[in-house]
Structures are given as C-alpha cells and as structure tokens.
Design a protein around this nucleic acid. Structure first.
Lengths: 170, 170
DNA sequence: GAAGTTAGACAAGATGCTTGTCTATGTCCA
DNA sequence: TGGACATAGACAAGCATCTTGTCTAACTTC
C-alpha cells in the first residue's frame, strides 16, 4: 500500500486532519466552540512574543492585514486584548487574556491525549520513530509552533508574505 | 524533540505542506499554473467515476454547490468537459480532457519524484515504515484519493456535506 | 398520475486571505 | 534640525472556496 507519492501526501494530511478534527471537537465540548486551529496557533504566537500585528504577520507569514483581522477576531472573542504601547505611539501591544491561556492549556492537553491514543495503538517506540523521521524530513524550521498562516492558508495556495504594504517598487 | 501532541500534528502538516508546495511549484514550471491541489484531486475523482456534480459532491464530502463551482472552474480551464447525458436529461456527464489527464500524469510523476527524494534522505525502509505506521493510524478510509474537499476546506473547519439541498426538515 | 427524490442552478453570505492606498509615528543621517 | 525613508496600523475592495436557502426540471415509485 501507499507506494505513490500522492498517497504519502494524503497520509500525512489524513494524520493531521484526524488529530485536528478530534481536537477541535473536544475543545468544543470543553466550552471553546468558537476557535479554530488558526486561532490556537495565533494565540500561541502572541504569547510567545509576537505582541503586535506586524510582528504576528511576520512570524506567521501572512500579510499584516490578515494578521490584524485574526487579532480582531481573537479580541472580539476575548482571547487577547490590545493596549497602547507607551514607548511607541504607533504600536498596540497584544496581550493574551486568562481565557486565552486557558485555551492554550486545554489545547495542549487534548493534543497530548490524542498522541497517547496513537501511542497505544502502534506503540510508543514506533510513534517516536515516526516523529523522528518526519522531523528529519520536514526540518525544525517548518515546525515552528507560531505558524498559523502556514497552517491553513486559502486552500494551500502559495503563501505570500513579508511587508506587502510598502512594496510598490514597480 | 517533539514530545507534545501539538508538535506531532504540526509535523504531519509540515510534511504534507512541504510535499504539496513543492508539487504545486513544479507543476507551475511545467505549464500548469492555474491548478491547486483541490483541482488535481477533483479531476482524479472525476476520472475515477464521479462523473456528475452530485456524485462528485458525495465522494468529496462537500456540498453539491461547491462541487458544481469546482467543476465550472475546471471546465473554464480546459480540464473537464460537460456533456448531456443521453439517458437522464437532468444530468450532465463529466469527462476529463486530454489536458486533464496530462495534468494527472504530471502530478503523479512529481509526487513520486518527491517521495524518492525523501527516500534518499532517510532511506526507503524507514520511509516505508513511516507510511505503514501512518496508514495504520489513519486508516485507509481517510486516504481515499478522491477527497478534495477533505484536503482543504475553509481553514480546516468542520466538514459539512451530504445532500444539503433538500434538507429543510425543521 | 400524484408524491417523493434527485440533478443542477441561482443568489446570498461567511471566512480567510490578498492587493492597494493612506495616515501617523519613528529612525537615520547629512 | 529637517528631510528621506521605514514602520505600525487601518480602510476599502476583491478573490477563492465553501456554506445555506430556494427553485425548476426531470426521473422514480407505487
């Protein structure tokens, strides 16, 4: 089975989706019905130091505008707040709220549980092998936790990025 | 490395995306600049027998409308054609064009090449192990080649489906 | 031949992204 | 010190993909 390269891709996607779908469902049961993986990852990135829209956009490889939109959703739903930056009047600093941190914790716990289920099914050694092989292939650069845009751009189209605004050049 | 469940999910996604991005880029270089993975999978499904919009929608777990839209794009770009069905005046039979089949062939070749690159990097045995383990975890049901909607729905939201139209019940 | 089902289409809306353009603020340096 | 340039954030418009909801025309079943 799965000798074709396309099958390999599908397997990887299948694995990802089955984890993420299960996680999202469970998250819904635990009272976070309004979140998607992107949100989780974006909050994580903000907590990890991407505390402005521009910075978030850089780290996540989407346009500033896209980042701003995500932030505005997160703010509406109570996961982050925006505060004026005392040192730079242009910036608005992002802070993850308690609810935001709660979400991150729940998310981690759920993913860990799912991983344990997998470990029980194929054995922890084999799962670790799988992880080791994948991380060798994918490289750690791609595994940055703070990469929401990368998680789900429009139908996997080419990911644009990098300061689109002041481009104009031509 | 990668002891957390979230990392595992990210690894899987990373693997998938790196394959798909590379494939899409290479496909562009070979003269198919107007296709996305969804299109490839949709054409594949049509070639595999999903020869009407309704059937495609069922197999791909998206609404009929979404399927119809995809078909219309594929038709505009010359990958499929629609013909009246002699036996059923409601239906319009779908046929993959030569260009469509060319695309499928190129796509397969590219994915196979990518898989070989991976095999060279970690060894064919380990790659096969990885595939075997994944397919054990994911199950073959999820690996259906004909599942575009499943590939990339809106930001990995819950995938709806199944004859949405005549629902109305409530 | 009436009741129900199915194929396909039109319209509108949600999401999540993209350009393009603009203002206000900071920074660099001649 | 002041002008050139970079940067933060925002508004507007548009694209792509998917979703409801509604409708007609054509089968199917009994």
């Amino acid at each position: 089975m799965s000798r074709s390269g396309a099958d390999l891709a599908l397997l990887l996607l299948g694995g990802f989706r089955s984890l993420v779908d299960a996680a999202q469902e469970e998250l819904g049961r635990r009272g976070y019905e309004d979140v998607r993986p992107v949100h989780d990852f974006a909050i994580r990135a903000i907590a990890a130091g991407a505390d402005s829209a521009s910075e978030l956009s850089r780290r996540t490889a989407v346009t500033k505008q896209a980042a701003a939109q995500t932030i505005s959703v997160l703010q509406d739903r109570g996961y982050v707040v925006r505060q004026a930056d005392p040192g730079d009047a242009r910036r608005k600093r992002l802070h993850v709220t308690d609810r935001g941190f709660d979400l991150l914790r729940e998310g981690e716990a759920i993913f860990d549980e799912l991983r344990e289920q997998w470990a029980r099914r194929i054995g922890i050694e084999r799962l670790q092998q799988l992880e080791a092989q994948l991380s060798e292939l994918v490289g750690s650069a791609a595994v940055r936790v703070d990469a929401p845009g990368w998680v789900a751009t429009q139908d996997f189209g080419p990911s644009a990025a990098v300061e689109t605004t002041t481009r104009s050049g031509a």
